[in-house]
Design a protein around this nucleic acid. Structure first.
Length: 270
DNA sequence: AACGAAACCTGCGCGC
DNA sequence: TGCGCGCAGGTTTCGT
């Protein structure tokens, strides 16, 4: 569930707590999270310090001395910082012991998260960041239009595609389409230049507001590190099935688009 | 080539 | 109460 705003909130919070701490040990209890060769991972992360944490789209990028760790939280990945002698939860899969004997623990109920390691000098050219689209705030609107206007996919599917634009997930794409007054099922090929531009503007606006409010906290995603988002108070359509549209008062319905649960105001969104 | 569906996992809420 | 089932979601992989 973490999308760009939640990942950004995690980034900021984590950085305050672990910047310049050295990783002195790693305990990997569920190795499938690590998508790099395990020996390479261990030898290239231990004894390096966390110099910075960056973010691209939904990826967290831990900048170490000579390497970077690129982490995707997928649906339920979280980080916790605990003391070395605290009991290990069954959903904590990777434990980094830091040089002050605190531990950075990766927690993931669904075990869908991923972790890649690359040398610091070429990580932008390596998978997975090399195939990532720009974030909405950096996306050229005309490029976006040209990229999608031959596609027969519904616009929602296109906007969820991280190769085209990065950062949006199911929550923010529903909100973006509502703001732009475009129906999620509309084929990308039917989107005009003006609408393509409106979509990028709406996505940029939604994401920046959500970052400002610390992300969205719904359902199980009660965040890591006590991070409590407040954007759920700003949602217009997502999770609002059966409620009234804040613009026209028509009932908000839930449908399935691109295989995803989708909330839409059928009167406002055409 | 380009799209949709299944798979990856687990917990939860539902109906019986 | 307890069981099985479907659903949820981000992304990759498989199948058409």
């Amino acid at each position: 569930m973490p999308e760009l705003p939640e990942v950004e909130t995690v980034r900021r919070t984590l950085l305050l707590k672990i910047k310049d701490k050295k990783i002195i040990d790693i305990n990997c209890l569920y190795p499938n999270i690590i998508k790099t060769d395990m020996t390479y991972f261990m030898t290239h992360v231990i004894n390096q310090s966390i110099r910075d944490i960056k973010r691209m789209g939904k990826y967290l990028i831990f900048i170490l001395d000579k390497n970077v760790m690129i982490i995707h939280l997928r649906m339920e990945g979280k980080f916790f910082i605990k003391q070395y002698d605290e009991e290990i939860d069954k959903h904590e899969h990777i434990i980094f012991t830091l040089d002050d004997m605190s531990q950075l623990r990766y927690h993931d109920v669904r075990k869908f998260g991923t972790l890649h390691i690359h040398p610091i000098d070429n990580y932008l050219k390596a998978y997975p960041l090399n195939v990532l689209g720009s974030e909405p705030k950096d996306k050229d609107k005309l490029d976006f239009y040209h990229q999608i206007h031959h596609s027969n996919r519904p616009i929602k599917g296109v906007m969820l595609d991280q190769h085209i634009i990065s950062g949006l997930g199911n929550i923010y794409v529903d909100e973006t389409l509502f703001l732009a007054k475009i129906h999620p099922s509309r084929l990308a090929s039917k989107i005009t230049k003006k609408q393509a531009s409106d979509l990028i503007d709406a996505a940029t606006k939604v994401l920046s507001k959500a970052v400002e409010l610390g992300g969205t906290t719904i359902r199980s995603y009660t965040s890591s590190l006590g991070v409590h988002g407040r954007f759920q108070n700003e949602l217009n359509v997502h999770t609002k099935q059966g409620e009234s549209c804040p613009v026209c008062a028509h009932e908000i319905i839930k449908i399935k688009v691109a295989g995803r649960g989708t909330y839409v105001c059928p009167k406002c969104q055409k």
